[in-house]
């Protein structure tokens, strides 16, 4: 293994190393298993080699983009966080991951992407501010649509938008799921004893965004805060494994780690965007002026230049 594998994921905020649950899963698993990854924290999914995030660029398997596939790949490379688990615990891992995906994930998607107030005031704002200039106008909307569709398909025919009953059912399921997790965790440090396993990566990455994001309407957070052992569990993982990245803002720390690429690429993009936006603005103003007749351009011979100049002044006076 010459160079480390490269991981592309959403940048972090709200005290988390990444804002996206899927990216967070992979990052956390990598930390648990000690896999050396070169992490690119990006804000533009188009920069990822597969067009979506997270993506792992590997040497022999090409680009992987599903969290489960990435974790399987890491496992094959001997970075296995589940090494000490018994077969039965391995079975439990699968079962609880299914529980998370079926019960908690739909509510998580709903509260971040579908619930009107949360989406407009929090999620769309965050992504619009983070994604670079021309993309930020349509990418958040596109993601909103994709998530809405995903939710509809996961929940089947019974899902209707703006239907209070189905929504309530969604949150009841999620709250039940969190309570079950809390009961399963009880007083342990991690789900299977003292060392973290892949299940911990999944649970943490689904709970941490709920706990840290400041959504205006956060029913899930309210329920989660009533389960002190889960909150404690999330905080412990954050402080133990992401102590360097969490508090001080992720923009400072990942850069030395991920080498020079983001450093050199972020700046010119920013400058170019500024210049571009000024240009577009100017063009719009001039265009408007020309079209509405405030300024008119006429091609005149040198002899008539003086007369034309006077005529134009007249024109302006008339308009005033």
């Amino acid at each position: 293994m010459a160079a480390p594998m490269e991981l592309y994921c959403w940048k972090g905020d709200w005290g988390l190393p990444s804002v996206d649950p899927d990216c967070l899963t992979v990052l956390t698993y990598a930390k648990f298993s000690g896999a050396p990854l070169k992490v690119h924290k990006v804000t533009n999914p188009w920069r990822s080699p597969s067009g979506r995030l997270p993506a792992l660029k590997t040497h022999d398997d090409g680009v992987l983009f599903q969290p489960s596939k990435i974790i399987t790949h890491l496992r094959k490379q001997k970075y296995n966080a589940d090494y000490d688990l018994s077969a039965k615990q391995g079975a439990d891992t699968l079962a609880f991951i299914s529980l998370l995906e079926e019960k908690l994930l739909p509510a998580l998607i709903h509260s971040f992407w579908v619930e009107g107030k949360n989406y407009v005031e929090h999620t769309r704002r965050w992504y619009a501010e983070s994604i670079p200039f021309p993309l930020n106008f349509f990418l958040p909307n596109q993601m909103h649509k994709r998530n809405l569709e995903r939710l509809q398909l996961i929940r089947g025919d019974s899902w209707r938008e703006e239907d209070e009953d189905t929504e309530r059912q969604l949150y009841t399921d999620a709250q039940e799921c969190m309570s079950l997790l809390s009961q399963r965790l009880a007083k342990h440090k991690f789900f299977f004893g003292d060392s973290p396993a892949s299940l911990d990566a999944y649970v943490f990455s689904h709970l941490a965004p709920i706990l840290s994001a400041k959504l205006p309407n956060n029913k899930l957070q309210q329920h989660l805060s009533s389960l002190p052992n889960l909150c404690q569990y999330c905080r412990a993982i954050l402080t133990i494994y992401f102590a360097w990245e969490g508090d001080s803002g992720p923009r400072i720390t990942p850069k030395p780690q991920s080498g020079e690429t983001p450093d050199t690429e972020e700046e010119p993009h920013k400058r170019r965007n500024q210049v571009l936006s000024v240009l577009v603005g100017l063009l719009a103003m001039v265009g408007y002026a020309v079209l509405s007749g405030i300024v008119s351009i006429q091609r005149v011979g040198p002899d008539h230049a003086l007369e034309q100049g006077i005529a134009m002044e007249d024109n302006e006076e008339e308009e005033e």
Binding site: A95, S98, E101, E102, L180, Q183, R184
Partner: peptide
């Protein structure tokens, strides 16, 4: 008990999911 019930639900979701 509580833990068993949590595990039961989890395995039911495993069957549904996979």
């Amino acid at each position: 008990d509580e833990v068993q019930r949590a595990e039961m639900k989890a395995y039911m979701e495993l069957v549904n999911n996979m």
